[in-house]
């Protein structure tokens, strides 16, 4: 069975963890804190990813819900727009955005690493397809009681969106936490720099000490592992039907 392949697969991860404890032991972790302002970098990454996930959940679920349920002029055009934006990767707008951000003097801010990633075609489509399948009876009942679309969305739809919120959060968290290209373009100093870029800089800043580099790596992956582990529990297709009862 795939046992040997699994071993080969965990080998680099095992090497990362073991390496972070070699030639210095736990001191490697302390040395990271002495060589860089790790708390600052961690805060930057948490702040950027946190707001991207939360704002994205609100903005994209609202749009997905409206597209799935409300009839309004221009709906078909907007759906087409979402489909187009879905296939255009961020790299396609990196150069012109970099130009605009530089001209506006917005480099080296955290906001410029959040806002471009909030509205997202893939996420909108994810919410849209989820809400198409959402049982109409619940909304109709609420509608009869006099609730408007905003109330239905806030009190009924969003609280019952667990699985799709988890999916949105997982994909957004992974891409946001790992972002490298955009921070490389828009950050010059450490004050707004996120962890991946700081890790690459840490590796090339002498002295080359692999124990410390690996300790940095472990520290950087732990938060996203925790976040993923937490989201995975809510990542259940059954949670939708449990909301109906």
């Amino acid at each position: 069975m795939p046992a040997w392949l699994a071993l080969l697969y965990v080998w680099p991860i095992g090497m990362l963890v073991a390496g972070s404890l070699q030639a210095g032991g736990l001191g490697n972790y302390l040395a990271v804190g002495q060589r860089v302002d790790f708390l600052r970098l961690l805060f930057n990454s948490l702040w950027i990813s946190g707001w991207t996930v939360v704002l994205g959940a609100l903005v994209n679920s609202l749009a997905g819900y409206a597209l799935a349920r409300l009839q309004f002029p221009g709906r078909a055009v907007l759906l087409g727009l979402v489909l187009i934006c879905m296939v255009i990767p961020f790299e396609a707008v990196a150069a012109p955005l970099f130009y605009s951000v530089s001209r506006l003097g917005l480099r080296d801010t955290l906001g410029v690493q959040i806002l471009p990633f909030v509205a997202n075609g893939v996420s909108i489509y994810l919410f849209y397809t989820f809400y198409l399948e959402f049982p109409r009876e619940l909304e109709e009942a609420a509608c009869l009681e006099g609730a408007g679309p905003w109330q239905i969305y806030g009190r009924l739809v969003l609280p019952n969106s667990g699985p799709v919120l988890a999916t949105h959060s997982v994909i957004t968290l992974l891409s946001s936490w790992g972002a490298y290209l955009w921070p490389l373009l828009v950050t010059a100093g450490p004050q707004a720099r996120p962890l991946p870029l700081a890790l690459a800089n840490f590796m090339t800043t002498p002295p080359l000490h692999w124990g410390q580099i690996f300790a940095f790596g472990v520290l950087m992956v732990v938060p996203v592992l925790l976040g993923f582990g937490f989201l995975q529990r809510y990542f259940q297709p059954g949670s939708l039907t449990s909301g109906i009862k």
């Binding site: 409206a66 727009l81 012109p96 955005l97 806002l115 509205a119």
Partner: peptide
């Protein structure tokens, strides 16, 4: 309800791409 998302997509996807198309016909540096 869709306006924040539409604003985001226009501002950070479509407008930059349109800008990119325009700039590609210049020697902007």
């Amino acid at each position: 309800m869709v306006s924040p998302a539409v604003l985001g997509l226009l501002l950070f996807v479509l407008a930059p791409f349109a800008l990119s198309f325009l700039i590609s016909f210049t020697d902007l540096s």
